[in-house]
Write a protein that binds this DNA or RNA. Structure first.
Lengths: 113, 113, 113, 113
DNA sequence: TTTT
DNA sequence: TTTT
């Protein structure tokens, strides 16, 4: 792993429940989307809110943590690496997707007593 | 700008000459691809080399720096934010692309005397 | 500012109320300590909790944000740069101190309704 | 290890040869100083160059890499965590020091053929 | 599709 | 001096 060559850090809220499954070689995989919100002023000085969605991939211990603790709406911070790949969809069209392979997860939701 | 919510750092070599142009509202825009290399051991213990390509977007001063100093093969480090968008290609197909809007560039090539 | 050459990111809780003052040239300065907690297993396999304390320096808008929103116990995330300096204490002894000049602050406490 | 709670990234040149030794429990430890340079404009608009020095601590594989490849003047990028501790110097005075425990090293010097 |  |  080279953290210094390819590293992403995000803070945001999950848009769905993590989808967890076992792969053929018995590894645990979780997928979930995360939204990051930012605001900036456009050329007219109006405040623009922008939401970006990112695809997170979690393996093994991170996937298990996701299954146990992460829910739709959870706020988390993650560190991972960018990974792009292509696949052929059901209609036979080649598609490209960029995902973030998560190395570390920090839960930001406060526990309720 | 929220650096803490959405931040990418990459170190790698450029795959092409930066394409620089002026936008309609007279801003300078540069596009260039960067490759990040990493290696890991697979389940058989073999060393696997993996190259990832990323799309960089540079505006204004960063674009001018790119035009002046960056060449195919240049090694750089960048910090930016992830941004995904869709567009319709020439055949009318909707496509998705993930790009990195660059905030800062560090040149890693050594000067020659 | 070179974010790529010297960058620190911390997530933790504040150990005191921010101390805010005006400097001679009318800039606002806030100082506050932040604790980062981590745990690791020692050679006997025992879980060890370790707390590190860091000195944060905030200027102007960040200092005003600190004065308004940050309290003892607040959880925040920051990005900044490492800066070390020496000074002479009241007994005439030369001392060294390392501080983090904060560029960006993210509040992690949840609002209560 | 919590990379998300306490993380430092530096790019700079080493100020000395790494000092490498074995600890009592047979681990390899290397110490070396790194300088980071930045420039900013002061209130008079003058460009000010500022050099900061940081203390790096490398253990085991990182220490061995340092011994083998790092020299005075080498340019590297590192990722690590901030750690402060106190010790009593030869004159019996209590001193404080902030160090960076290095997790990862990237060599930026170009190989010569 | 999240959240403020 | 924080917090879990």
């Amino acid at each position: 792993m080279s953290n210094l060559r390819n590293s992403v850090r995000l803070v945001g809220h999950l848009g769905n429940e993590p989808e967890v499954k076992k792969t053929a070689n018995n590894k645990t995989l979780a997928r979930v989307s995360i939204a990051t919100n930012s605001s900036y002023k456009n050329e007219k000085g109006e405040k623009i809110e922008e939401t970006q969605w990112h695809n997170l991939i979690m393996w093994d211990n991170n996937a298990k943590l996701a299954e146990k603790y992460l829910r739709k709406g959870s706020e988390i911070s993650i560190e991972g690496r960018l990974s792009s790949r292509s696949y052929t969809d059901n209609s036979g069209v080649k598609k490209y997707i960029t995902e973030i392979i998560v190395n570390e997860i920090l839960l930001l939701d406060k526990k309720k007593d």
